[in-house]
Amino acid sequence: MAFQILLNVFLAFVWMFLTVSFNGASFLIGYLIGLLIIFILRRFFHSRFYLIPLFVIVKLVFIFLKELLLSNIAVVKVVLNRSLDIRPGIFALPTELEKDWEVTVLSLLITLTPGTLVLDVSEDGRTLYIHALDVPDVKETIKSIKESFEKTIMEVSQ
């Protein structure tokens, strides 16, 4: 992905040198032409055409914003509730993500959605220890949320 972006910038510069016009507009034109060329030559690269991971990253951002809103509303409900019937607890979440940055992004997304907080990552990086505000009933839904986060992060890097 990074290689394709670099190649695209390089092609844009080549376009600028060919047309002998060094400004932002000609860079943009060259970038779009380079995008088309890379799309035509997409079979020669090891990774996918790089716009697909970029769209997945945008999708991840929107999923995160949605989760942030929903879980904040849930926490507000807990705070304003008269009876404090929450059961906090810590549970382990096995993850299939391998790379450092994947585990980091997953942990940050889990921490930034209220109600859950990553406490520790195991030595082999395959288990996240998560503190949850309300364990019994939310555990399954939280698992499903994590599946959505984890699945999207996997889509970025496959």
């Binding site: 450092d100 585990v103 980091t104 942990s107 940050l108 520790d120 990086g125």
Partner: peptide
């Protein structure tokens, strides 16, 4: 202690 998050962010 596995400080993978700290390392990546650094």
């Amino acid at each position: 202690m596995n400080n993978v998050i700290l390392r990546t962010i650094t």
